[in-house]
């Protein structure tokens, strides 16, 4: 089951391509982390999936339909933009009423329970809320809508550590209980390591890496040994990054097979090492567009 599928997807703003050649399959029922440097195209990809943007090239299909193509499609997809927009003149309670009117699957009990737990005053105007409180209100609307797919652009950036943990708990409960699929961008890799089981790395408007997190971790290794030329590595070991000192070579490879060469000291990577290796070495390997299974 695929919840988001893109074929050669691209988006051009005036003369600049914000996203190009994006081919992707995001499986349903998973939490997908979207990472990349600022300006890599993360928000553009989420905007395209939500139907807030029109593709300049290629196609995108979300929950089996064209993004933003009608009321049925809009009901399936939730989107919380980076600036967590709310209506400044409406109160918190009015936001919940609006949510109930506009969304056929609205979970009113969850919405009110969450607002009470966070400690938001229902009578307060949304324009008077702090940045973190505003984000909490927007995220509550996103979860209570009960979409099939929830798109979150930097959802926890403005939250304090406790609020962040509580939000991720609510989100994971929704995934467990309702089979919600999530695609969320974030710079906080420690959070992603907890909650994400699927990963998309975007660099320079292109997809650099995508796949199941545990598969990716199982197929990447750090090899350390005496200095040598990486061209001598077996063909099934694809080099992600390489560093030499005068005596030593450290190379990060992607391979399905075990490392048999005894001259290497073989180390495993955590998610942060893996992501940083792809972010800091954009040129070594051809972009890998396939989904790893």
């Amino acid at each position: 089951m695929t919840v988001l599928r893109a074929q050669g997807l691209g988006k051009k703003y005036k003369r600049r391509w914000a996203l190009t050649g994006c081919t992707l399959d995001v499986p349903a029922g998973h939490v997908t982390g979207l990472v990349g440097p600022n300006g890599a195209g993360k928000s553009t990809l989420l905007g395209l999936a939500a139907g807030m943007l029109e593709p300049s090239s290629g196609t995108i299909e979300v929950c089996g339909g064209v993004p933003g193509s009608g009321p049925a499609q809009l009901a399936k997809v939730g989107f919380v933009a980076q600036n967590t927009p709310v209506y400044a003149n409406l109160t918190v309670e009015e936001h919940l009423r609006l949510g109930a009117r506009l969304n056929p699957g609205w979970d009113d009990e969850l919405a009110h329970e969450r607002i009470a737990r966070i400690g938001l005053d229902p009578a307060q105007a949304a324009g008077k809320l702090s940045g973190g409180q505003r984000a909490q209100l927007a995220l509550t609307l996103g979860i209570a809508k009960r979409p099939e797919l929830l798109l979150l652009d930097e959802p926890v950036a403005s939250l304090d550590p406790l609020a962040r943990r509580e939000f991720l708990q609510d989100l994971m409960e929704a995934v467990a209980e309702h089979g919600l699929s999530v695609v969320m961008s974030s710079h906080l890799i420690a959070d992603l390591e907890r909650v994400c089981d699927h990963l998309i790395v975007l660099v320079d408007s292109r997809i650099r890496l995508t796949g199941d997190v545990d598969d990716l971790l199982a197929t990447h290794r750090r090899l350390t040994g005496p200095r040598r030329d990486v061209d001598t590595l077996p063909a099934d070991q694809r080099v992600v990054s390489v560093r030499h000192t005068d005596r030593q070579t450290t190379v990060l490879v992607r391979t399905e097979a075990p490392i048999l060469d005894p001259s290497w000291d073989v180390g495993e990577l955590d998610l942060e090492d893996l992501i940083l290796a792809y972010l800091t070495n954009p040129g070594v390997e051809r972009p890998n567009l396939g989904v790893v299974r």
Partner: peptide, 18 residues
């Protein structure tokens, strides 16, 4: 229970199931 682990740790349910 998977649900409790998820709520306790803010962790992906698929991870617990796996």
């Amino acid at each position: 229970k998977v649900k409790d682990v998820v709520a306790d740790l803010a962790i992906n349910p698929n991870t617990v199931l796996k």
